[in-house]
Computed example of a mutant assay.
Amino acid sequence: MPKTEKDDPRVGYWLQNKPQKTKVVLIGFPSDEGVRRNGGREGASEAPDKIRQELYKMTPDAEETTLFIDLIEHTTDVGDLKTSGNLEEDQQKLGNIVAGYLEQGVIPIILGGGHETAYGHFSGYAEANLKTSIFNLDAHTDVRPLNNGKAHSGSPFRQALEHETSVETYLVAGLQPYSVARSHLKFIDEHGGDYLFRDETNITSISGFFHRHESERLMVTFDMDVVDQSQAPGVSAPCANGIAADLWLTAAYLAGRNEQVTSFDLSEFNPRYDRDSQTAKLAALTIWHFLLGLSQRS
């Protein structure tokens, strides 16, 4: 249980309460059926609870305590969506939940799950009939075609871009040149998107991506396989030359600060392959940094 002493409060104390006015919600999406279909390492379905365990133990920001607490006093963890293993149905359920919060002006933070989480996340915008741009921090483009007509963890952004409710822009950063097919880049180009490879991905370029789109809304999705495997070993597809954890965390903070960001998800943390909870702690700290950024919006 998180500590509640006045001199040592923990984030979990607030997240387990039900505020009168909700501004932010945490939703777990314990699915890795899409990873299985894509031939990846299963186990991401166990991530939401592991992330919570670490996040709940963290304290509010020591430097901006009042602002941080003001936000988490209006943040609640609504638990996990009950998944069935039918990926398409589960994604639609997630979309229905996300749509309801978007329509209320509440910011959903979704704890995946494989990166199939992102299409369920996007489905909320489609269900609410809201146009959005998408920013993805990822080692892969995730615009692969469906497998025998079925969605998977590598297809969410192709599905989103081909949806009848158009995505205004798709932006992806952190790509590894050895993990991306030329045809995938061509697909992004043809749909008016943009991309950055790992060596081009830094604070300046990420900040530029956050502010270069014209949409009123920006859906943000972070795939943990973009982080170097020395700092994030517990992922579905480890990356030997990924970005540094400090860049990843700063990007989460910038996403929170950006007033155009209306939702956030974190995907592909796989507890089965973690080491001493290293990746779980980084995942939780990612959510903490996003909340910190949210708390400092002017």
Rank of each mutant, 00 (worst) to 15 (best):
M1K: 11
P2C: 04
P2H: 04
K3D: 14
E5W: 13
D8Y: 14
W14A: 01
K18E: 11
V25M: 08
V25Y: 05
P30M: 05
P30A: 03
G34M: 09
V35G: 02
A44Q: 05
S45Q: 15
A47H: 09
P48M: 04
P48C: 00
K57R: 12
K57W: 07
T59F: 03
T59H: 15
D61F: 03
E63A: 04
E64Y: 09
T66I: 11
L71Q: 00
I72V: 12
D77I: 01
D77V: 00
D77P: 05
L81W: 04
T83E: 12
G85P: 09
L87C: 05
E88S: 12
E89G: 10
Q91V: 02
K93S: 10
K93T: 04
G95W: 10
V98E: 03
Q104L: 09
L111A: 01
G112V: 05
G114I: 10
G114M: 04
G114S: 10
T117K: 10
H121P: 03
A126L: 07
L130A: 03
L130Q: 15
I134M: 10
F135K: 05
N136T: 10
D138N: 11
T141C: 14
L146Y: 11
N147K: 15
N147V: 12
G154L: 08
F157R: 08
R158F: 08
L161D: 07
H163Q: 08
H163C: 02
E164P: 05
E164T: 13
Y170C: 01
Y170A: 03
L171C: 02
V172N: 01
G174Y: 08
L175P: 02
L175K: 02
P177K: 14
P177E: 07
Y178V: 08
S179P: 01
A181Y: 13
A181R: 12
R182N: 12
D189L: 09
D194Q: 06
E200F: 04
E200T: 03
N202D: 15
S205A: 08
S207Q: 15
S207A: 09
G208M: 04
F209E: 01
H211R: 13
H211Q: 14
L218T: 05
V220G: 00
T221M: 05
S230I: 14
P233V: 06
P233K: 05
V235K: 02
S236E: 13
S236M: 13
S236F: 04
A237G: 07
P238M: 02
C239I: 05
A240L: 10
A240H: 13
G242Q: 05
L247S: 07
W248K: 01
T250D: 08
T250S: 08
G256R: 03
G256K: 03
N258D: 15
E259M: 08
E259R: 07
Q260H: 15
V261E: 03
V261T: 12
S263F: 06
L266F: 04
S267G: 02
E268V: 15
F269T: 04
P271Y: 06
D274T: 02
R275M: 10
D276Q: 14
D276K: 14
Q278H: 10
T279F: 05
L282T: 04
H289N: 13
F290Y: 14
F290C: 04
F290V: 02
L291Q: 09
G293D: 00
Q296V: 00
